[in-house]
Design a protein around this nucleic acid. Structure first.
Lengths: 191, 191
DNA sequence: CGATTTTTTGAATCATATCAACGTACGTGG
DNA sequence: CCACGTACGTTGATATGATTCAAAAAATCG
């Protein structure tokens, strides 16, 4: 039916009624982003978290040499935002922009907190999201401190086959912390 | 008073009463570990999460060449365990052992869930822990995909000055994903 | 079709790893 | 008190994996 409805239903034990979902939906605002448009710019406070209905986005830092380092990729049914800036209302170190034209549901921190108080299923869902996120982050950290480029890439393929189709290779390379040139060579070597 | 009591009080909006805390404490079991003793071994399911009352621990993988890669360090007031194995009851890819003699409060997954239902302050606390953890992991990922050895080390010093005093240099090096030799050279270079 | 983005490739270079040796400190048992 | 083992840190020489740069090829898009 509605992607967010399905998302909450699949992740909360109790599930959510159609009526409750209307209430939940009321807390979100729809937002359209064109390709390359910023959702968040370095130095700004991340006022909104976004749930992606359609599209693809990237979160990245820019170093002193101007090189981009992609820390997160996201597509449909993923959340985007800089958690640190969102929670503490501090200037973000990241940029987030749309890689494709995308459509989001956005919500402020204040509203998330209020919504959590009114809707148990929503809390359960966000808790589960945090839990899964922690697990995924742990894996990524393990991979990035202990595995060479080739292993990092195969781990990625296994874990996120859907992302490979959505982003070009040089973006994936940056996400993995290796250069596009190296990733190209790794792929050839694997055949 | 009691480290876990203080921990919950500092992290839940409402706080916890002395009476409720007795109930919480009842769900935990005290566990002593001698230096080098395993808390979790690769291949086993992580049945318990632990709250460190006293001591220091490390979580690591062992690669095919027998080298250890430290993915997490923990001291007093930190939680230890492999979240993925704990949540899904799958064999863990990690070892966790005591770096010093340590004293823990441990709890099963089932009891965490039950306790969460009975004590709102406990839920709030674990939610906050997950949130902070996500933020910290994000930082670590950013650092590890984009920064060279020296920056990674200075980031670490800034973020966890207390850990530097508790673990020898070669352990820190492994945590940062660099060799002990390189860390030694980095330190000299910084003076 | 031209323009832009993406991928590939080779050559030179750089950061870090590896290996081996040595120095130091600490603790334990004789 | 000494002798020994163990753990830790440093250092130099060498090896290696990955980066950088530049150029060209290939794919994509309006």
């Amino acid at each position: 039916m509605h992607p967010l409805f399905d998302y909450i239903n699949a992740r909360s034990k109790s599930g959510i009624s159609a009526g409750d979902f209307e209430m939940v939906k009321g807390y979100f605002t729809r937002k359209q982003l064109r390709k390359k448009q910023y959702f968040l710019q370095e130095g700004d406070v991340c006022k909104y978290y976004g749930f992606i209905l359609k599209g693809a986005m990237r979160q990245y830092t820019v170093d002193d040499k101007g090189a981009e380092h992609i820390v997160q990729l996201a597509v449909e049914n993923w959340w985007v935002g800089d958690r640190e800036s969102y929670v503490f209302a501090t200037p973000s170190a990241y940029n987030i922009d749309a890689w494709e034209d995308t459509e989001l549901l956005i919500i402020t921190r204040k509203d998330v907190i209020e919504l959590a108080e009114r809707c148990p299923a929503f809390i359960e869902t966000t808790r589960l999201m945090d839990e899964r996120n922690n697990i995924a982050n742990q894996r990524r950290i393990t991979s990035s401190i202990s595995a060479p480029a080739e292993k990092r890439y195969t781990d990625f393929l296994e874990c996120y086959p859907n992302l490979v189709e959505r982003f070009p290779q040089h973006v994936i390379a940056s996400y993995l912390g290796i250069s596009k040139d190296t990733l190209s060579r790794v792929k050839r070597h694997r055949l």
